[in-house]
Design a binder for these strands. Structure first.
Length: 289
DNA sequence: GCGCAGGGGGTCG
DNA sequence: CGACCCCCTGCG
């Protein structure tokens, strides 16, 4: 364990607030100084933007520079992506201006699966609370600057939790889902490593859908926000349904908008970058609502 | 202040 | 298509 610093100079498309509050992650918290602190693998990381520089500070086992490059997807050219998407229409152009510093993280697949199962019919403060409590009980403690942090539990460690244990941590009806999925992964009925090797997004999606608590929306979030990193998915939640209806479909009752229609529209308009388009639209709509 | 509805990043049967 | 656990929020 060691403290490290890595500075990214002249950063473009990197705004901590946009990255950590666009709804893709649950383990980052804002500090008094506007920086964000979170847990990535066995490391605590603090991210602060000063002018056009990003200052990463970490305490943990991994080499910070490589970790930051991987996790924040720093080798991807977001300027080019944004330029492409901005040309599609004025709505996307505006939402990209609003969330110009969004980057989609490469989050651990296992952690992302469990986190988004917990997210079902739930709100963000509570989701974060549940994940914190799970990590506190089944993860490893890291002490840094007088504060305690907990890593997300491994499959083996979370498998020690009974359904009742999970219920006691406040998971509610999601307890059985997390339990079943944990044991399915533990038994290698679903092999997470193999999922990374599969090229066909639909096939990976079908595999994810076999997991308890993973439906279409959660599967798409996992595909988009984890190291699976597929942009050709379009997670449809209440906000995305709302924004797509208001901008394009214009149905009086947004709850009656057909999911297939939204999917078709997204594919037509945004093509294989639809997942990114979804994030800009979602962040803009939810934040300005 | 406090109590009480209302509803939330959906999934399952 | 309704129920689901819990808690966070807003309103009286």
């Amino acid at each position: 364990m060691q403290e490290q610093q890595y500075i990214l100079k002249n950063a473009t498309s990197f705004e901590p607030k946009h990255i950590f509050e666009c709804g893709q992650c649950f383990r980052w918290d804002e500090e008094q100084d506007g920086s964000y602190t979170g847990i990535v693998k066995n490391n605590v990381i603090n991210v602060k933007k000063v002018d056009s520089s990003i200052i990463f500070l970490s305490y943990g086992a991994d080499k910070l520079e490589q970790l930051a490059i991987d996790y924040f997807d720093l080798n991807r050219n977001y300027e080019e992506i944004k330029s492409t998407l901005s040309k599609i229409d004025i709505y996307l152009e505006n939402s990209i201006k609003y969330g110009s510093g969004i980057r989609i993280l490469n989050q651990d697949l296992w952690e992302t699966i469990i986190s988004f199962i917990i997210s079902a019919n739930n709100n963000i403060p509570r989701i974060k609370g549940i994940i914190n409590r799970i990590s506190q009980k089944y993860g490893n403690k890291i002490e840094w600057k007088g504060k305690k942090y907990y890593t997300f539990p491994t499959v083996e460690n979370l498998a020690k939790a009974s359904v009742e244990d999970l219920r006691a941590l406040g998971l509610g009806f999601r307890d059985v889902r997390v339990y079943e999925t944990t044991h399915k992964v533990l038994n290698k009925e679903v092999d997470l490593n193999k999922m990374h090797e599969e090229k066909d997004t639909q096939k990976v999606r079908d595999t994810l859908l076999t997991l308890s608590g993973v439906g279409p929306k959660v599967a798409d979030c996992i595909l988009l926000f984890s190291t699976l990193k597929r942009f050709d998915v379009f997670p449809i939640d209440v906000w995305v349904r709302r924004v797509m209806n208001e901008l394009y479909i214009k149905n009086e009752d947004e709850t009656k908008v057909n999911k297939k229609e939204i999917e078709k529209l997204a594919k037509e308009k945004y093509g294989d970058l639809e997942g990114l388009a979804q994030q800009y639209l979602f962040y803009w709509k939810r934040d300005t609502a």
